[in-house]
């Protein structure tokens, strides 16, 4: 069976949930093999094996250490040439998409981005994408070269299927071009302690309607164990960090439940949340377009509605 490469997403060897999802998808298409870039591969081995990676390609090359895009793409291209996989699955993060774009050019392959599903149908790899702000669903195939597919978080429930993972070290040296862009400074972001926005099962977002006071949104989110998002209006006003922005130029989320609070529902915001399973809105304007999307809506002032809802949730959860 041909290999399917999965680019591992991790922080210092701690494998992220997206990788388990990608390995689960890879098993539908062929034999999953993980490609690990960076340090602490030993810490990742157990998880990768649990989700069925039959090989773990990795390199200790210092050229890969600072984790920039070009060396990663060169590394993947080298493995593609070596193992002739049927597909390469890459997480749909900004960095992942860049790696995928370079890999597609390097290997003369078709590229599909932001897949929300990948299946094998009649021997063909068929992807599902959600386009035009979530108003259409498209089925697509890559017809040339190795199918290179970036896959969004939450595209498959991770399923374990333990395999014997063969450690496969690779000799690698990056090109000179790979070293022409370099990170000269980096300041870590403060952690909120809440779930990761794109991975969370529940997201509660606040907009201009909060008037800058996100406390009620946060308290409600915490009662549900949810991630907190924001509209661009709230971000532009400096009320919430840009990394929490949901929408076309922010994060695209697809949780089980999305709660939009004090958000009108502009097309650019919808582009980031329209595919959520269940949608709730709290807005004091009954004409707000967000109500066209909702399963449940409350027309009212968020400063009255949310605290009451938070108390009721806490009571119900005991």
């Amino acid at each position: 069976m041909a290999e399917v490469l999965v680019l591992v997403e991790h922080i210092d060897g701690r494998v992220r949930k997206t990788t388990a999802e990608l390995l689960t998808i890879a098993r539908r298409l062929g034999e999953p093999a993980a490609v690990f870039v960076g340090s602490n591969v030993a810490q990742a081995t157990d998880v990768l094996a649990k989700y069925g990676a039959t090989k773990i390609y990795h390199s200790d090359s210092a050229d890969l250490a600072d984790y920039l895009v070009v060396p990663q793409a060169e590394f993947l291209a080298q493995i593609v040439a070596q193992s002739s996989p049927v597909a390469v699955l890459i997480p749909s993060s900004p960095e992942g998409k860049e790696v995928a774009a370079r890999l597609a050019v390097k290997t003369d392959s078709g590229l599909i981005t932001d897949a929300v599903d990948v299946q094998l149908a009649d021997g063909k790899i068929v992807t599902t994408q959600s386009v035009f702000a979530g108003s259409y669903t498209v089925a697509a195939t890559a017809t040339t070269g190795t199918a290179i597919i970036t896959v969004k978080p939450n595209s498959a429930p991770p399923q374990q299927q333990p395999a014997e993972s063969v450690d496969t070290p690779v000799e690698f040296a990056a090109s000179d071009l790979a070293k022409t862009a370099r990170i000269t400074a980096s300041s870590p972001k403060a952690k909120s302690g809440r779930p990761e926005l794109t991975e969370a099962a529940i997201v509660v977002s606040g907009g201009r309607g909060t008037s800058g006071d996100f406390s009620k949104v946060e308290e409600f989110a915490d009662s549900l164990g949810a991630a907190v998002g924001a509209s661009r209006a709230a971000v532009d006003a400096g009320w919430y960090p840009h990394t929490s922005q949901v929408g076309q130029t922010g994060k695209q989320v697809s949780p089980q439940l999305y709660v939009a609070v004090g958000i009108s529902g502009a097309i650019q915001h919808r582009a980031g949340m329209q595919t959520s399973k269940t949608i709730i809105a709290v807005n004091k304007d009954e004409e707000a377009p967000i109500f066209e999307l909702v399963d449940f809506g409350v027309v009212g002032d968020l400063f009255n509605v949310l605290p009451q809802a938070t108390e009721a949730v806490k009571t119900a959860k005991g």
Partner: peptide, 18 residues
């Protein structure tokens, strides 16, 4: 979807839906 107008019980109704 179901839309309710808050008459002092909007939050509770939201929690019931949840």
């Amino acid at each position: 979807g179901q839309i309710v107008t808050d008459e002092g019980d909007g939050g509770s109704k939201l929690a019931v839906f949840l």
